[in-house]
Design a protein around this nucleic acid. Structure first.
Lengths: 240, 240
DNA sequence: GTCCCCGCAATGGTGTTACCTTTCGAGTTC
DNA sequence: GAACTCGAAAGGTAACACCATTGCGGGGAC
């Protein structure tokens, strides 16, 4: 997650207001004024304006003459902006954000694994097998922290090797999800053997260029997560 | 696609430089200065600065003292930013962008259809069936333009009914892809019957809350596109 | 003579302030 | 209730002090 610009004056203002909006402290329709921001943060008009421009470009606010800076409804946010994702994960919207991201992972990663089986370089193919084997070792020894680090490397490598830069751009986000899952204690004390098998299975398929098998194996890998999510649907499910 | 801010001074500068970067006219490592921009566009320093801040927040440039504004490598762009997508589609990166987006559709839309089967409201369920039926009528009569419009409504509805705001945020992008596909003449003169069946199949499944069938039907629907894409892989495929 | 290190000066973004212009919401008048 | 006026707040311009870099040049060591 690129935390660029965090040290400048803008950074603090951006973080504060961005979080307030994504947390719901500021609701759609609320208005701010530049003067208000200048006073609250002790910054000049220039900094206040530039910060608002950034928020505007993320879809969090709009700025109109005479009326001020208006907080926008969540439907107009750039929900793929890494900062928005980050803020929502850090704030009260975390559950919803985690659900969205997990669904996105389930959608994207199987395709990415399949594409990686086509597009990966020789080095990437050997590395993915290495990572798969290492995951087994770490998993069987119950080294959760190291397991997580390696798991992140595993999924990142596949997303980057997919040859699709939109998939690759999700690597940071997937890393955050995996990290959060471990740190929140949502992982079993020791990864289940099926998960270890699944990782090795994906790695072998990618390495061998078997794209359909790679896709299917990744779907298996994500399967448990998926089944655990379905009952959380907010709608009115019927039998299938 | 939100074209907000296109009328202000910033708009013109942003569009021009954003396009130049995403088109490759400005390459990674090239540098600009604020003064340069002021002169080129006849704008004040303030406008130049605010525009650069926006570009910086999209990951297209970084700004450093003494060195100026440095164009960033494509890997650090916010490739999900609607404006970046738009610029790439309009420019020389169009083929790559269309491929990425199509893969993304194939990944996301089946899941979105499945989620819609869980979460859609009663109105949405009846509407999706209506749209499916209408697509058949328009498709059989070969009314491509109307077909496209309705197809966009169909896919947009499913993405929005999925209950996942990240899926919903892709609706505009999917619309652009569908529109582009028709306008570029990549559609058959008359949609194939299988496509019409597939749409109705998806609609029926969503309407009935059958999420697995909805997902599978959407995968079928996108299947032809998928098969047409696979051979375009840049890597070294092996038999599967 | 070559190489390296240190210091200085040019460069170009950062942040502040002051001031004018433009828009448009709301209160007021008829 | 329609037109008019007023003023709030963003849009935009200009000029300034500041300071982090960096690149160059000089001087010393070998």
């Amino acid at each position: 997650m690129s935390r660029v610009g965090f040290e400048s004056r803008h950074g603090a203002v951006l973080e504060a207001i961005g979080r307030e909006i994504t947390d719901g402290d500021l609701e759609s329709g609320d208005t701010l004024t530049l003067e208000h921001i200048q006073e609250r943060f002790g910054v000049s008009r220039t900094v206040a304006r530039e910060t608002m421009r950034i928020l505007e470009s993320m879809g969090l606010v709009t700025s109109r003459r005479r009326v001020g800076i208006t907080v926008q409804d969540a439907t107009s946010w750039n929900v793929f902006d890494p900062r928005v994702i980050w803020w929502r994960l850090a704030g009260s919207g975390r559950d919803a954000q985690l659900r969205s991201l997990t669904e996105l992972r389930i959608a994207v990663e199987p395709l990415a694994a399949g594409a990686a089986a086509w597009n990966a370089s020789a080095e990437q193919r050997t590395r993915i097998v290495e990572l798969g084997a290492r995951l087994r070792g770490l998993g069987e020894r119950g080294l959760l922290e190291d397991f997580m680090q390696t798991d992140i490397a595993f999924h990142t490598l596949l997303l980057e090797a997919s040859g699709n830069e939109m998939f690759a751009a999700l690597a940071d986000v997937v890393a955050v999800v995996l990290r959060g899952r471990t740190q929140l204690g949502l992982m079993p004390r020791q990864p289940v053997p099926e998960a270890l098998d699944a990782h090795e299975n994906v790695a072998a398929a990618v390495s061998a260029g078997q794209y359909r098998r790679a896709e299917e194996a990744m779907r298996d890998l994500l399967g448990e997560v998926r089944d655990a999510m379905a009952p959380l649907g907010t709608g009115n499910p019927s039998l299938d």
